[in-house]
């Protein structure tokens, strides 16, 4: 067990963004999370990475209670993430964006991480933009940078928040292979994605959120075929 969420709840005013969610993820697993807009997916990520604190419940990472740990401590412990709305360090170059994560997230010296950062840039298709100011990237470049920067901190658990939006079919195929590769190398992945066929190609388990609650969880195909999911996505009464 690498991550365990126990009865996690977080409200904003009267809105329960995340409502009593239980979740357990095994080491090396790839889990997908889907749900309509406002279902609580990004809030759940912010709770796991520490940018938000839960009202109740606890978060366990690798056997340790990290409910009250800072985002920085969680990154150093091995949780990496991408942001749904990309937050590049705009005034740094693309390469330097990775350096920040590699140096500060892993506690390494610059000289030790140059090759690692260069290879991640190659694998994420950003190598040609390495010395470009990150603020000058288009949306696709920014999304790739989110993934690359998260990888640069060498996480054991990687949280991906809608990185496939706006990609062509061919690019989606490349992304699927890349995430599969990363997963095969032993990294645990939780991937929130609206583009379900991309998600299903990678993950072995799917969780569906709606109004902050876990609706259903299990193998991707039965979950997608379930009455609950069809109701949420197509408005068909079960």
């Amino acid at each position: 067990m690498i991550l365990k969420l126990d009865n996690l709840t977080r409200s904003f005013g009267s809105l329960k963004a995340v409502d009593g969610v239980h979740l357990e993820i095994a080491r090396g697993e790839a889990l997908g999370i889907i749900g309509p807009n406002g279902a609580g997916k990004s809030t759940l990520f912010n709770l796991v990475t520490g940018l938000l604190r839960p009202d109740t419940g606890s978060i366990w990472f690798d056997g340790r209670d990290i409910t009250h740990a800072s985002p920085r401590a969680r990154c150093i412990a091995g949780i990496g993430r991408s942001f749904q709305i990309p937050l590049p360090f705009e005034n740094l170059t693309v390469f330097e964006n990775l350096l920040v994560a590699a140096i500060h997230g892993r506690g390494r010296r610059e000289a030790q991480v140059i090759d690692a950062c260069g290879e991640i840039l190659e694998r994420t298709g950003l190598i040609a933009f390495a010395n470009r100011r990150a603020g000058a990237l288009n949306l696709l470049g920014r999304k790739r940078l989110e993934l690359a920067r998260a990888l640069a901190s060498a996480p054991r658990l990687l949280l991906l928040d809608e990185i496939a939006g706006g990609l062509t079919e061919a690019e989606c195929g490349e992304l699927v292979r890349l995430v599969q590769d990363i997963n095969k190398s032993g990294m645990t992945i939780i991937w929130v994605e609206h583009i379900v066929h991309v998600l299903v190609a990678v993950v072995s388990r799917l969780m569906v959120l709606n109004f902050g609650r876990k609706i259903i969880e299990g193998e991707p195909r039965p979950v997608m075929a379930s009455a609950e999911v069809r109701e949420i996505y197509m408005g068909i009464a079960a």
Partner: peptide, 24 residues
């Protein structure tokens, strides 16, 4: 230095800096 990288990161996005291990 590494502090300079951290500084620019903090200036551009505090949440992203925190989530990449920078002591903001």
């Amino acid at each position: 230095s590494r502090h300079g990288l951290a500084l620019s990161a903090v200036g551009d996005s505090e949440p992203a800096a925190e989530s990449t291990g920078v002591d903001v």
